[in-house]
Design a protein around this nucleic acid. Sequence first.
DNA 1: AATATGTTTCGTAATTTTGCGAAATACGAA
DNA 2: TTCGTATTTCGCAAAATTACGAAACATATT
Lengths: 99, 99
Amino acid sequence: MNSLEILKTEHELLAKYAKAISHPIRVYILYFLAKQACCFSGDLDKILPIARSTLSQHLKELKKAGLIKGNIEYPKIRYCLNTDNWEEAKKLFENFFGK
Amino acid sequence: MNSLEILKTEHELLAKYAKAISHPIRVYILYFLAKQACCFSGDLDKILPIARSTLSQHLKELKKAGLIKGNIEYPKIRYCLNTDNWEEAKKLFENFFGK
DNA sequence: AATATGTTTCGTAATTTTGCGAAATACGAA
DNA sequence: TTCGTATTTCGCAAAATTACGAAACATATT
């Protein structure tokens, strides 16, 4: 893989993370998790003015992007930041904007 | 405006900037401008594997989000970062990820 | 086995995004 | 005034996103 391809991959990765952050609801969820460590979907459902199914979809998006993960604790699911990828995203954005 | 509303606005602003960055082509354009100061649409057209009209649309998106601006220098248009908003976005992301 | 709980998946609809080629635009140069 | 250049806007189509309510799921409890 040459440097141009690495560059391309990095751009695509940054775009992927940016896309995950590109909706106010998802920004809020990430903000909430970054502050409070972890929470259950129901905690967010109480706060956010959207249907549960819609919330679930946003959580799915964030999971797909790798920014959060969910651990089952029946009958609930505990959502947390995926700290490794969170740090990766942080570094990509830092680099992008110029440290 | 209370603190919750300010928070909401900040989340929406961050989401808006993230959306602008959420496409690889736009990431590349911003990266290019951040490195090289300014350039013409034609410079990008030579590099990027998309139609001119599509490139134009992406530039429009970035302008709409406030991250770039274009100065007419007939028959070309010189595109530059909108540094004020670029700095604002940088700070929002820094805050978001935790400084 | 039946029920209750927290959450996701399904089906659907409306809107937005992405992309292209063709045509339009704006202006300087011939 | 006509021509050339750089870029945008238009018209369209395909795909993705966002949203909802209803139904399905997985499991602990009764």
